[in-house]
Design a binder for these strands. Sequence first.
DNA 1: AATGAATGAGAATTCATTCAT
DNA 2: AATGAATGAATTCTCATTCAT
Lengths: 230, 230, 230, 230
Amino acid sequence: MPAKPGPARPDSGGTATAERASPSRQRLAPEERLPLLLEAAVAEFAEHSYAGASMAGVAARAGVGKGLLCHYFPGGKTELFKTAIRSCIQPIFEEAESLAAGFSGPRREMLRALIAMGYGRMMDRKELALFCLIFAEAGRSPELADFYAEEVLARATSLLDKVLRTGVESGEFRADTAGHACMAQVIIAPTIMGSIWRMMLGESKAPALAAMCEAHARLVLQGLAPTVTD
Amino acid sequence: MPAKPGPARPDSGGTATAERASPSRQRLAPEERLPLLLEAAVAEFAEHSYAGASMAGVAARAGVGKGLLCHYFPGGKTELFKTAIRSCIQPIFEEAESLAAGFSGPRREMLRALIAMGYGRMMDRKELALFCLIFAEAGRSPELADFYAEEVLARATSLLDKVLRTGVESGEFRADTAGHACMAQVIIAPTIMGSIWRMMLGESKAPALAAMCEAHARLVLQGLAPTVTD
Amino acid sequence: MPAKPGPARPDSGGTATAERASPSRQRLAPEERLPLLLEAAVAEFAEHSYAGASMAGVAARAGVGKGLLCHYFPGGKTELFKTAIRSCIQPIFEEAESLAAGFSGPRREMLRALIAMGYGRMMDRKELALFCLIFAEAGRSPELADFYAEEVLARATSLLDKVLRTGVESGEFRADTAGHACMAQVIIAPTIMGSIWRMMLGESKAPALAAMCEAHARLVLQGLAPTVTD
Amino acid sequence: MPAKPGPARPDSGGTATAERASPSRQRLAPEERLPLLLEAAVAEFAEHSYAGASMAGVAARAGVGKGLLCHYFPGGKTELFKTAIRSCIQPIFEEAESLAAGFSGPRREMLRALIAMGYGRMMDRKELALFCLIFAEAGRSPELADFYAEEVLARATSLLDKVLRTGVESGEFRADTAGHACMAQVIIAPTIMGSIWRMMLGESKAPALAAMCEAHARLVLQGLAPTVTD
DNA sequence: AATGAATGAGAATTCATTCAT
DNA sequence: AATGAATGAATTCTCATTCAT
């Protein structure tokens, strides 16, 4: 059975087009246009969730026609969503990894700095919202789940694991820390939940950022510290 | 001899008209029907997220006509969603609160038991998925956000705060524990994240439940324990 | 990645519907509605070809909403097209086969009657047009090609082959007729081409029906007749 | 690190701006470009039918930009279609007419040769497909219908009529042949149907070419032959 | 209480065409 | 001569909801 929908009637009349004024037709190089489209997509998805977001809404935010969006993302909404998510998450890890790479002081302080950075990053509601969307959508998209597992969770855990390992070696952290397989996941979990709560409940109702950061750092550092009797 | 003569034609074997004896038209009392509808709704929302779920899908799962669903939930999809979520979350808290009420041993053990209960609850993917949906939807529904803030987060933290307070009083936990406003939130965060990861990534790729529970309990109990020098 | 498009925004407002008057909402039993839909589809496809036809056009012709069409043909345009085609072709064969079954005279006359019936059937431009659409679409739809091969071509040739065979047996037709594998196809071809021309060119420009029928019958009967020297 | 940074980005390896040295931008003279465009159009139309074919598809097949196609065919898809069809049909008639012009033997043999030529021509699926498209589209394009009536059907019939007339004069064909207005149409019809079946059903399922040709020639030559009693 | 035929707004996507470069 | 970014109308299809039965 023929597939392509095909819009126009074959021959009849044929006027359909002509004299359409171009209201704002701004021609941009793809390198310039792409970030604008992604920014619009982030805002739209953040506001309406995945299924509720509309391509038309994204296009309108970006000030372009719907067609252009399809031109840039032939994979449709799906592809747009993935690309938008990637574009949000990338910079967070770049910051965290460069912080870790450039840090030379004691591991206690490094861990404290990484935790603080996590809470300090929770500023932009839009990016936060998009980040949280992964949780709702990954269950339906194996591809997204894989992306999260590999590009987010594994990346964060491996960063943290290295800190823990070197801290144990230097005697700053308890020797049995390394024996717990999911310690890194437990340690970052409150940061992520903090993001989620902040996004869900807004600044006024969510647990205060500074207080969470303080309690989090305290619990973790005390929990990892070697005891005298140890 | 069209292949599919009409739309779903479940049974209409009968003659031209008359005798509308509908074999599957099962008349149920509202008290019996309601739970069936909610169960179907939970499954549908879990599978398709809020916006992607369809009323027809829920009705089909429940084995009823669309009309009946609208009859039971005149507020439409929105109302159905809220009711379904409430029906999922209720039992979790009932269990946690009854556990807390009946516990008489040391606070350390009670905290450990509560943490373990949290991980033990993460069994049903469907309920888990619905639980995670709140994160994605609350941003758009103030009512849902309020529900979460009051019926979930506040309820959980107040439960935990009581444990911490009495533990400090009994000398089991560090004296400065109570000074940290968000300690309870930090403590439950890994449990919730554990649910989320499990839901997102599935049993095979998510951090192992037992390992997380073990690391979590260890970190928390050590982090709260009074030090010799304290 | 989530699949369902999902239309509405989750919670906001929620007025969307209500007070929509029903202008003409006529409830019909599927057995009554279906033929109306098919008739409309035949007309639309005949006028616009497959790709050019629109579901909205069919719905409008039938005086129903677009939704109902999708309700009856969940397979979409594809399914509608196939069903419409079947509904057009069925009666032609029923007529031909009942004519053949009830005919008891000499095979010459039976053959002449069948040819005449073919030309006599070419009355309805719409059905004719739909019939011709198979030619254009079968190349892209193996399923349609199979349908044509089995339900149309094979059925017609087997009908004709039987006439030829019995005619040879009775001595009315040349003994070597049966030796030509595609004689039946060659014999019906002008009838089909006649339909095509009539559909393409209209009554005024197409070869005259009566003349074609006359020339066709003459050529075939003379071509099959045993010669004296045979 | 988006997977697909922008839309097709053929080569733009260069720096931000400047140096628009396009490697593939091949400048061709119109006489050279035109046949390439038409060949691409034939392939695209053959594969997707009229309404289903896309200008972008044609441009891509030809390896040019969409703009150039519009430049060559300002009349749009309609014009492109007509031109492509003409370019396909032209050579067939040139061959048939030159065959007829150069033939000097008996009319029987000439007729047999013309029939054989028709079947011999049915080799290229693409051209065949385009040829069959006329049937589907002519109903909607009076211009196309006129083209077919005059440039195809009339041309073929007049060629054949001449053969029949001279054959009657030479005594090779029955005297009453000329009295039948549509004899020529009836005679060529099986050839055209053979093309259509071949195109629709493919080589494997369509009636065998050689068998049809043989049966066709036999029926026609016997049908036209004067009988002893004539 | 229960059904499902019917609706129509709105979603994604495609496409011929224009025009700045 | 040639390109491809940009447009926006048109198309298919979905879906929450209503209401006659």
